[in-house]
Design a protein around this nucleic acid. Structure first.
Lengths: 92, 92
DNA sequence: TTGACAGGCAAGCGTCCGCTTGCATAACGT
DNA sequence: ACGTTATGCAAGCGGACGCTTGCCTGTCAA
């Protein structure tokens, strides 16, 4: 559960989620190209790959293999309960 | 803005927010005692103090001086826009 | 005024994190 | 078959992070 917060702590990983929100199901190279173009991030391929592993371990990402391509999809399910945890004050 | 995510990345800081949600306006020593009792965390006073600094820098905390006491209050304002960022897909 | 209480400042240390580097694997085109 | 494309694995490095340690400031009670 705490993996979700650690995954969101890095700005590059948040940019990846932004990119996948704009266009879901991208491959690793597509993400690299669009991160460099849109967000001005000069991260290498291996760096992005490791970020994708972290996001997948947190349950925020789901990978789909197809031939030599691997498409990545967001899963926003773990995001919903993490904020309402502190927003409701009349719980006690 | 990214400070909010980095602040939430640490489990001790999340426990502090839990404690302040349950009982707002506690002092440093109160937080230390209740963290040790409820959450089983054996963190020292200085460690908690530094965590409070991080939370305050992220805008999640607001301090109020009164004599030799310093009461800490949550501010959940920065929490609201951070999740809807990825939840809405029909924004493009 | 003296002592205890609540908190602050800053240096040092060990660990984790993000990134690079180098090589390996697997699928496709020709 | 061969080279290219898309991705995987693992060791190593530098910096940031969380925590400790030690000392200092300010406030209240007796």
């Amino acid at each position: 559960m705490g993996d979700v917060f650690k995954a969101l702590a890095d700005p590059t990983r948040r940019a990846i989620l932004d990119e996948l929100t704009d266009r879901d199901g991208q491959t690793l190279f597509e993400i690299c190209a669009r991160l460099a173009a849109k967000h001005g991030l000069g991260s290498s391929r291996q760096a992005i790959s490791q970020h994708l592993d972290v996001l997948a371990a947190a349950g925020l990402l789901q990978a789909r293999r197809e031939g030599r391509y691997k498409f990545h999809h967001i899963d926003t399910t773990p995001l919903e309960p993490i904020v309402e945890r502190w927003l409701r004050k009349g719980s006690k």
